[in-house]
Design a protein around this nucleic acid. Sequence first.
DNA 1: CGCCAGGTTGTTG
DNA 2: CAACAACATGGC
Length: 236
Amino acid sequence: MKNPKIPEIYSSLHDHFGYQNWWPIVESGRSLYLPEFRSRERSFEEAFEIAIGALLTQNTAWTNVEKALFALRRENLLNFHSLSCLNRDDLAAKIRPAGYFNQKARKIHALCRFIESEFNGDFFSLKSLSVLEAREKLLNVWGIGKETADSILLYGLGMPIFVVDAYTRRIFSRLGICDEKADYDEMRLLIEDSIDRDLVLYQEYHAQIVKQAVTFCSKKPKCSGCPIAFLCLFEK
DNA sequence: CGCCAGGTTGTTG
DNA sequence: CAACAACATGGC
């Protein structure tokens, strides 16, 4: 399946918003969206941080995730060794602002145990597998579902797989491209079939979707000035 | 105050 | 297999 609207949506969003330079890395109380992220691979430390951010942002506003990441960074805990060793309840307390803190502390430890047991602390080893094989491994970790796995693969490990989220479904359904509750992999494959298999394009496109959903295509839509209104059925 | 936010898991019909 | 509850904080 191929949908010609899908590349057109991207160029319109990119023309309007410009490069998003995802995924951000936190540093001294700031989220950094650096242009160099489009031209170099992430270090292991950056990839690990992205994986933690991906777990923390599950059904949670990024502003709340930031608070948790800033606290971890400030105390030099935002690394594999520190989080592996940290007591579960202490970890939960540190990430409290991100919500669901008990669940998320457990998920972080599940990820750490996975990295430790499968790859002796170096989950960059996942890069030597095919993207779908690596995805299967991640999906076996408690607390990692499809969106989280794909975010880790795409943004942390630099492997081309498209990240689908609630925003993607909302925007694409309003554009008449899919049903509001379309199947995850069905949506992913539709998008992957419709655009070039290019890492930075995948990274930027998902980032543009988030930007669009926050700025214009919110739950209660603010259509005035929307860059893709000309493609939309929802708009009055 | 109510709604919403870059989901996932476990339970139930 | 679909629908639903549970998990929780902070911004607007």
